Simulated scan of single mutants.
Amino acid sequence: MPDKKIALGSDHGGFRLKEEIKNYLESKGFEAIDFGTESESSVDYPDFAFKVVKAIINGDVEKGIIMCGTGIGISITANRFPGIRAALCWDSFTAKMSRLHNNSNLLAMGGRIIGVELAKDIVDTWLSTEFEGGRHERRINKIDELAKIFWEEYLRGDK
């Protein structure tokens, strides 16, 4: 059985969609751990991406869903951290492929571009699709390996 805890986070642009998705997840038996924001007052999306990312990296949850106005800024932020595979999805196909081939552990959506019913369909697809593994596993591992090489070289001062 998949983990029933899902971390949620958004800025002001994704706040309304986050609230809808939180209620939807809870109605389906998930524990939605809401890292904010708590209103439509202007805030900075990196702060909320970071909170959700930390919950995944620390092992508090396996997956999370993040939202900002377009989903772009918050997904860029999340993908800066090791082990995070945030996928910006705008339909069920992208959600399915992000899990099937990329083993995404963080779903990003745009609160100003995705309607509530479409977002629910994206969430359902994303949560119900299992990672295919195989050749895709090799590629996922390569991402982490290349990042590790980069940071080791960077910290040594290599160019």
Rank of each mutant, 00 (worst) to 15 (best):
F48W: 03
F48N: 00
A49R: 03
A49P: 02
F50Y: 14
K51W: 09
V52I: 09
V53M: 06
K54W: 06
A55T: 12
I56H: 00
I56K: 00
I56G: 00
I57N: 14
I57E: 12
N58E: 14
N58A: 13
G59F: 03
G59S: 10
G59R: 06
D60H: 08
D60K: 13
V61T: 11
V61R: 00
E62V: 11
E62S: 15
E62T: 15
E62L: 13
G64K: 00
G64I: 01
I65F: 07
I66T: 11
I66Q: 07
I66Y: 08
M67K: 12
C68V: 04
G69W: 04
T70N: 09
T70H: 05
G73T: 10
G73W: 09
I74M: 08
S75H: 03
A78Y: 05
N79T: 06
R80N: 14
R80F: 07
G83H: 07
I84R: 03
I84T: 06
I84K: 02
I84Y: 05
A86Q: 02
A86Y: 05
A87W: 01
A87P: 08
L88F: 12
L88D: 12
L88K: 13
C89T: 13
C89Q: 10
W90Q: 14
W90P: 00
D91Q: 07
D91W: 08
D91A: 06
S92W: 04
F93V: 12
T94E: 06
T94G: 04
A95Y: 01
K96L: 15
K96N: 13
S98K: 02
S98W: 02
R99P: 01
R99T: 06
L100G: 04
H101G: 09
N102M: 10
S104Q: 08
S104P: 09
L106D: 00
L107V: 01
A108S: 15
A108E: 01
A108G: 14
G110M: 10
G110H: 08
G111R: 00
G111M: 04
I114A: 15
I114T: 15
I114N: 15
G115Q: 14
G115A: 11
V116F: 07
E117K: 13
K120S: 07
D121G: 05
D121V: 12
D121P: 02
I122Q: 00
I122Y: 05
T125S: 05
T125Y: 05
W126S: 05
W126A: 06
L127S: 11
S128L: 05
T129R: 09
F131E: 11
F131V: 09
E132C: 10
G133T: 12
G133P: 07
G134S: 14
G134K: 14
G134I: 06
R135P: 10
R135D: 09
H136D: 01
